[in-house]
Amino acid sequence: MSAPLQIGLLVFPRVTQLDLTGPLQVFSIVPGASVHLIWKRIEPVASDSVLTLTPTTTFADCPQLDVICVPGGAGADDMINDEEMLQFLRSQAAGAKYITSVCTGSLVLGAAGLLKGYCAATHWTAMEFLGLYGAIPTKTRVCVDRNRVTGGGVTAGIDFALTLVSILIDRPTAQSIQLRLEYNPAPPFDSGSPDTAPPEILARLKERSAPAQARRRTANLRAAERLA
């Protein structure tokens, strides 16, 4: 009897919950998989919404993972300079089959030195920072480069997870999970990308997010300088 597939998703303060819960829902349906939510301590962790998440294991107690996944969110801007987080990722990556992320979680992988020379996706607002870590920014919903699998912003986490299941198990399993979830998106507006959103909507969002973008830039420059 084969050992269960060990899949771990990182939890941290101000994580974007859909970055995590989208893939989590997919991975939880994978036959024979053991799924872990990982943080430094077993304690409630506030997401970027009203939802509070509870880790199932700690950095110290986490088993060797086959898949390690880092979601994104405002908290990721703190994680790129959190040495305890980065060291955990490096340690797990040494034995993991797949090193993955959703949204700005790719910046955390980059800060850990795990994306140098790899193509990677991220949220459109963070694309400019991937190059700081030697990654090759790739404007796609899901990017597969050898054993690095990265998803774009937030909702791309479901696409990412289904893609990874098709690689880990097979396509019919991924298709069955997609059908079970009735994942058949038909968005009401064609404004889910900066390429298609009305210019005034894009300008409004950029204005609102300018302070957060400035903080992200400072954090990433600091992390990249540390890696240099």
Score class of each variant (00 low, 15 high):
G113T: 12
A94G: 08
D78A: 11
I80D: 00
M127G: 11
T52C: 09
L107P: 14
D78Q: 11
L86C: 00
F88G: 09
T122K: 05
D61H: 04
H36D: 06
G117H: 08
L37T: 03
A33T: 10
T54C: 06
Q92H: 10
L107C: 08
E43W: 04
T104A: 09
G110W: 06
D66W: 03
I68R: 01
V102R: 08
V108Y: 07
S49H: 11
V50D: 09
A120E: 10
G95E: 08
A33Y: 09
E128I: 04
C62H: 03
L89G: 02
Y98T: 12
P71H: 14
L109Y: 04
W39L: 00
P55E: 02
L114A: 14
D48Y: 10
P55T: 01
Y118G: 06
V50N: 08
S91F: 01
M127Q: 14
S91P: 01
G105Q: 11
T56C: 00
C69D: 08
G32S: 12
M127T: 14
S91I: 11
S106A: 15
A74S: 10
Q87L: 11
G110C: 09
L86I: 05
E43C: 03
A121I: 09
I99Q: 06
S34E: 15
L114E: 12
T58I: 09
V50S: 13
D48L: 04
V35P: 08
Y98R: 02
T56D: 00
Q87G: 00
L89S: 00
R41I: 02
G117C: 14
A93T: 02
L107W: 03
Q92F: 04
T125R: 15
S101A: 09
G95T: 15
G72M: 03
E43I: 13
C62Q: 05
A74D: 08
K97V: 06
T54H: 08
I38K: 02
Q64Y: 01
W39S: 15
A112V: 07
T125H: 12
S106L: 02
G75E: 07
E83L: 02
T54V: 06
I42W: 05
P55A: 06
A126N: 13
P63D: 13
W39D: 11
V50E: 15
G105I: 12
T104I: 12
A96R: 14
M127P: 08
E43Q: 15
G117S: 12
L89H: 05
G110D: 07
K40G: 03
V70R: 02
M85T: 14
M85D: 00
D61I: 02
A126E: 09
A126G: 07
G117K: 14
L86K: 01
E43T: 13
Q92L: 05
Q87N: 10
V108D: 03
D66C: 13
R41M: 10
M79S: 07
I38A: 09
V45Y: 00
E43L: 11
G117R: 14
M79I: 01
S49E: 13
